[in-house]
Amino acid sequence: MAALRVAAYLLLLVLGVLTGVAGALVQAAWFPGGLLLALLGQMALCYGGVRVMDTRLGGGAPAAGWTAVVLYLTATRPEGDFVFSVGVGSYVFLLGGMVAGVMCATMPKLSQPGRSSARLGK
């Protein structure tokens, strides 16, 4: 059972990496719709991770993968190539995605394990 949870967290981490790469390519291509689509994809993945795993780490794993790959893509290369252009959209994508990941990773737990949702005493 624990190995299955670890595999699920690793899958969420990989999905965060893929979402970061896809968002980096889409956010400037179809501005402003691509930016909105990239941010909504990041938010949906992090929130979905929280809901599926029922832990905060479920939102933190894709946020960590997303942040790592996006920060890697912001670095300039010796060849002079870069993924992000200079502009407001790139900064909104970087900061907005990080804020969305932190919000999902720090949101309150959705349910308490081992307790029923029924009211007691009535």
Rank of each mutant, 00 (worst) to 15 (best):
G16F: 05
V14N: 08
T106I: 08
F93K: 01
R5Y: 10
A7G: 10
M1S: 15
W66C: 06
T76W: 12
L18E: 09
G34H: 01
G114T: 05
A105K: 04
G97Y: 02
D54R: 15
A3G: 15
V6M: 11
S85T: 15
G34C: 03
G20F: 01
P113T: 08
L94K: 06
T19Q: 13
P62I: 09
A7H: 05
E79A: 13
V83E: 01
Q42G: 04
V26Y: 05
G33P: 01
G101T: 06
Q42S: 11
G121W: 06
A7P: 05
A100P: 00
T74F: 11
Y91A: 13
W30F: 14
G89T: 14
Q112F: 12
L10E: 02
G23R: 04
G121T: 05
V21A: 10
T74H: 11
T19E: 03
R51Q: 10
L12C: 02
S116T: 15
P78Q: 06
A44W: 07
L39R: 06
R51V: 14
L71T: 13
R56G: 13
M98E: 08
V86C: 09
G80D: 00
R5T: 09
L25D: 14
A75E: 12
S116C: 09
A61G: 01
D81Q: 12
A8S: 09
L36A: 10
A7R: 05
A8Y: 05
K122P: 13
G97T: 07
V102D: 03
A105W: 09
L110A: 07
V50A: 09
L12P: 01
A7V: 10
M107T: 08
S85G: 15
R5H: 07
C46R: 05
G41V: 00
L110S: 05
M53T: 08
L110F: 08
L37P: 00
A100D: 01
L120F: 02
V69G: 01
M43V: 15
S116H: 13
V86K: 15
Y9H: 11
V69E: 02
T76S: 08
P108M: 07
V52I: 10
V17H: 07
K122M: 11
A61K: 00
L45Q: 00
A29E: 08
M107D: 14
L18I: 14
R115G: 03
G97A: 08
T76K: 09
L39N: 03
S111M: 11
A64M: 11
Y47C: 11
A24C: 09
G23M: 04
G20L: 06
G34M: 01
V70L: 02
V52P: 00
G65W: 04
M1A: 15
V26L: 13
M103S: 09
R115N: 09
Q27T: 05
Y47P: 00
A22Q: 10
G87M: 08
L94I: 14
M53H: 03
V17K: 11
G97F: 02
V14A: 15
Y47M: 12
G48W: 01
L13M: 12
V70C: 06
E79G: 13
Q42Y: 06
G96I: 07
A3F: 13
